[in-house]
Amino acid sequence: MYNEIILDHFRKPRNVGVIEDADGVGEVGNAVCGDMMTFYLKVKDDCIVDARYQTFGCGAAIAVSSMVSEMIKGKKIQEVMEMTHKDVSNMLGGLPPQKEHCSNLGIDAVKKAIEDYRAKKACNNTSAVQK
């Protein structure tokens, strides 16, 4: 059912983990639908310098999170915001049709983490001004 690229990422997921002092955290999915992903980002000069994640989900969900973590590391935030689930699916050599939704999950989690980063940054700037 899964191709070799997907199986490789599933068997040896890259960049698994939690960043305790992350600049942005994004969580999507829930246990009911069977997939849940949390992405942690470190950002420097509008660039993603580190990306880690935790994933509860099937083989495809784990492979997607691993691939996404590799795709976004070192990229400018703007570039990442332009990535689509199709890009992830293509990089994985295509997901089985019923698993296509898993690729959304990875991209959505990262974009949510970026929004979180931006919100925190805006908040910090505001508090800096207030001082």
Binding site: P13, V16, V18, E27, M36, M37, T38, Q54, T55, F56
Partner: peptide, 8 residues
């Protein structure tokens, strides 16, 4: 479990 956000 080590990589599950639910476990954490």
């Amino acid at each position: 479990r080590q990589m599950s956000p639910l476990y954490r």
